[in-house]
Amino acid sequence: MTDAAATAAPIQGNAATAQPEAMSWDSKTRRLVMLYVPLACFVLILLFPFYWMGITAFKPNAELYDYKTYNPFWIGSPTLDHIKHLLFNTAYPRWLVTTMTVSICATILSLFASTLAAYAIQRLRFRGSQYVGLAIYLAYLVPPSILFIPLATMVFQLGLFDTPMALILTYPTFLIPFCTWLLIGYFKSIPYELEECALIDGATRIQILMKITLPLAVPGLISAGIFSFTLSWNEFIYALAFIQSSESKTVPVAILTELVSGDVYQWGALMAGSLLGSLPVAIFYSFFVDYYVSSLTGAVKE
């Protein structure tokens, strides 16, 4: 479509300028310069930090700090030392488990709450349901940077300071608004007639939700779940403010506060930690790319 438009453009323009041969590029060259070269640059730049992360994680220290004798873009003799150090000399496995637990619990909690809320707003049509929807949407616009100080005092007063529970309960504040909006969109796409049929057959509201609406909304639930999981895995400021003891930190916080010690940074271990910390999300994401993209774009379009 646009593709056709782009290649047809010079021919069109040239008819007017009456210089067809001079201006009309070979369309393949044109495509190469206008499309593939910039695209390749984008991909190169967007991926380079990951490449660099990966390469550093497997480089022995001798190569890491000597660019004169070794080509820094490649590994001479790959080593697992950094990863070994990470897994056996630090609490890294512990941090991974904590992060996983927190992310999964927060995701389940927010999925549960937002499914019910989205169903109520979209299907139970009570007075003011639109305003409740709007209020939940506005909640998404409140950034965590404004909330972490009062939340820290609250968490302290509730006795949750330094426990994973503090994170499980606060993460839904930014997950629920997003999931609710996503699911409202999905519920909207399910024909209301199906529910009416079930009502006529004598199903209760709960049965309708459990047996008709939810099974049809599974793609939406998956999207919302993946999104929540990655967002909780990435969360930083709450985890930094509410968790103090080394062993119950989440991966992003722990790498920054526990592995960075003194003046000499252990770049190998730091990069290995970042790589390992990114992998679960990346793998998870790669299985559900399409759901992820649809949730991202769907939420924006709402």
């Binding site: 991966v251 790498i255 930690g273 970042s274 990114s278 993209v293």
Partner: peptide
């Protein structure tokens, strides 16, 4: 989309 998926702090460390 990868840069957006990976935890910000980890890519920031990179």
């Amino acid at each position: 989309l990868l840069p957006w998926i990976v935890p910000t702090v980890l890519s920031a460390i990179a």
